[in-house]
Amino acid sequence: MEGRLVVAVSPHIRAEMDTRKVMMGVLISLVPGIVAGVWFFRWHALVLLASCLAGTLSAEASACILRKKPSTLGDLSAAVTGVLLAMVLPPTLPFWAAFLGGVVAVGVGKQVFGGLGQNIFNPALVGRAFLMAAFPVLMTTWVAPGPEAVTVATPLALMKFDHKATPLLDLLVGKVGGCMGETSALALLIGGLFLVLKGYADWRIPLSYLGTVAVLGAIPWAFRPDLYPSPMFHLLAGGLMLGAWFMATDPVTTPVTKVGRYMFGIGAGVLVVVIRLWGGLPEGVMYSILLMNAVTPLIDRYTVPVPFGGKR
């Protein structure tokens, strides 16, 4: 009889999706961005990618050994963190700094809190924030795409400090200075749309995030187009595309309710525009997402859905 009669509690239908599949989907959706990064920054991009992956994977493996837990390398989340981290670092960052960033991203950003699902902040952005504080000069040295590594300013820095606009087509394709995987808005958009259409990420966050930046960015531009960048520039420049599609949609560090996700996107969008236009830094995507990560538990608490027939 045993084995033929199975009585189990609901749910009886299991979804095919598991962590490994979702992470695989994210990795696939990052391919266009990586290809663009490697195309523009050549071997710099490959070295960066390899060092970051080595950092995150070794930190994940050693944390599992230290905590006497089965290895979680197979769920690919550390690999996703490594690739995302490499994409938000300057291409010419030394390999040891990238490796350190990977170790901090997974070690301090994730494993200290208890592993995947427990972390408060997006691990890749924790790694970047650490590197930003540790090596401010290395982290703000940018090179132009192409075989010769010529130092340039990023489009956002040019806009902020010299009021010089970069052609929108260059921003769309990615032929500008910037982090390894953030320059080509088009490649990231393709990957992001894949992610959303396959259902791996919720469209509400990128929509509200990008929408808020566009609307808020348009207001000062409407009054002083000579001083402030256009909303299109806001959308295409810097790390906004990467952040909105791949980092603000991290299911662990963003709200679980639908209303909460709109709030997350709007809040992050406001922060980006405020930092870009009035802050001391040219770019604010990293801090906008990290700050909204910090208030995510609060958002979740205030947006608990009311069950049918229930009372608030």
Partner: peptide, 18 residues
């Protein structure tokens, strides 16, 4: 040694103490 500026900053104190 390439200095890690963050360790001299307050964030470095919290990290090290932790």
């Amino acid at each position: 040694w390439h200095p890690w500026v963050v360790m001299i900053l307050p964030a470095g104190a919290f990290l090290t103490l932790g």
